[in-house]
């Protein structure tokens, strides 16, 4: 296979990864890793480097739109980024000492969890009674809906912060945005309306991924020949996905993708156990 053929096939694959990632809300990085390792037989370390770039591109691209709409809670994002960036740096350091097969198995498990999370019941309710700590940290806010501005308060700040640290470690270790865990922390634990939690999670993914990306770049995990089709493809796919989302209801698609992703996760775990990485 020549570099030209490889780049074109990878560009198309990354485009589809970005599309699927944006329609399911899983993010492009999650799909990029199995694509590179299982389809193209690329070492998982190069795949992690490329997936981190895909996560940053995706996050920054989408966040620019959400921030403008005023849905993102910037203070909450900034406060929780302490947890995710510290976690991400720890994850990136631990990654060097972790066998690649273990990383692959862990990735498969997180993939299963993320697929299950996209099917969960979403928290629509805004809390009217928050905790003292949330008030002191100025985390309570409001967001625009079609019925006007809705105020919300939050609780369990400490528990949310802890889950965010875990999300950061996994992000640094596996090269993914860990959007599913971030939403779990904000939506289920801190009781934030899902529209705010998804956009704030997405806003944070860029910074979290950048914290480990600087480590991976310096360690030589980021190959230009893989990076360029992946970054351009995922961005294009995510862009198409965001346009499609306003016109179609992705509910049925979401179920199909979740089944597909379950198979991919099983294959990652199976190959990991058989030391294929």
């Amino acid at each position: 296979m020549t570099i030209l053929t490889f780049s074109i096939i990878l560009l198309v694959g990354a485009y589809l990864a970005g599309l699927v990632g944006s329609l399911t809300g899983l993010g492009g990085g999650v799909v990029v890793i199995p694509l590179l390792t299982l389809v193209f037989q690329v070492d998982i370390r190069y795949a992690i480097g490329a997936a981190l770039l895909a996560s940053i591109a995706n996050s920054s691209g989408a966040a620019s739109a959400y921030v403008k709409e005023g849905i993102t809670n910037i203070r909450l994002g900034m406060f929780l980024e302490i947890a995710t960036t510290v976690g991400a740096v720890i994850g990136a350091v631990v990654a060097v000492y972790t066998p690649t097969n273990t990383i692959a198995i862990l990735f498969g498990v997180i993939l299963l969890f993320s697929a299950a999370m996209t099917l969960r019941k979403k928290n629509q309710e805004a809390l009217t009674e928050g905790s003292k700590l949330a008030d002191r940290l100025k985390l309570n806010n409001s967001y625009p809906t079609k019925d006007g501005e809705v105020s919300y308060k939050l609780k369990n700040v400490g528990a949310g912060f802890s889950i965010m640290t875990v999300a950061g470690v996994l992000s640094g270790l596996l090269g993914i945005g860990s959007g599913a865990l971030k939403v779990l922390a904000m939506d289920t634990t801190m009781h934030i309306p899902f529209k705010v939690s998804t956009t704030t999670s997405n806003f944070m993914i860029g910074v979290t991924a950048a914290a480990s990306a600087v480590v991976y770049l310096q360690r030589g995990y980021m190959d230009p020949g893989i990076a360029f089709p992946v970054v351009l493809g995922v961005l294009g796919g995510a862009f198409t996905g965001s346009k499609l989302l306003t016109r179609i209801d992705p509910k049925v698609l979401r179920y199909i993708f979740c089944i597909a992703i379950t198979f991919v996760a099983a294959e990652m775990i199976y190959n990991g156990i058989n030391h294929q990485f």
């Binding site: 770039l53 940053i56 996050s59 920054s60 910074v207 950048a210 980021m222 360029f228 970054v231």
Partner: peptide, 11 residues
Amino acid sequence: QLGVMVLIATP
């Protein structure tokens, strides 16, 4: 790689 650096620097 310069583009990659700009991408990482953005956040």
